[in-house]
């Protein structure tokens, strides 16, 4: 191995801030395996009680949508406003529905 040219893979880090909420992406760490990735993530992202649970996922294991496909992927939903409750105008007498 050359002078420390570490080919450690990149891991995406997710933190659950407190019980009752989802894990949220906070950044990345490098580590040779999942166990060390967790330890590095602990040291880097939770020094001030920012979380009660951590996930690490190898970055290369994530399949992401292509930003250039955003049209096909996301625009079809834009003309279906009827999916939202606000699309339906009801008389004021119907107070809370």
């Amino acid at each position: 191995m050359s002078a420390g040219r570490a080919d450690w893979p990149l891991w995406e880090v997710f933190v659950r801030a407190r019980r009752g909420v989802s894990h949220v992406h906070v950044g990345t760490v490098h580590a040779p395996d999942a166990e060390l990735a967790l330890q590095n993530a602990r040291d880097l992202f939770t020094r001030r009680s920012e979380g009660v649970s951590l996930w690490v996922v190898r970055s290369s294991d994530i399949t992401a949508s292509d930003p250039d496909d955003r049209g096909e992927m996301f625009e079809p939903a834009e003309d279906k406003t009827f999916r939202h409750p606000t699309d339906f105008e009801l008389p004021d007498e119907v107070a809370n529905m």
């Binding site: 191995m1 002078a3 420390g4 570490a6 450690w8 580590a31 040779p32 395996d33 166990e35 060390l36």
Partner: peptide
């Protein structure tokens, strides 16, 4: 610091390889 830390990075890699 980077050079003297080489063995630490190598050891961590070896440890991960051993466990895998």
């Amino acid at each position: 610091a980077h050079e003297t830390g080489t063995w630490v990075r190598e050891a961590a890699t070896a440890y991960a390889d051993k466990h895998a």
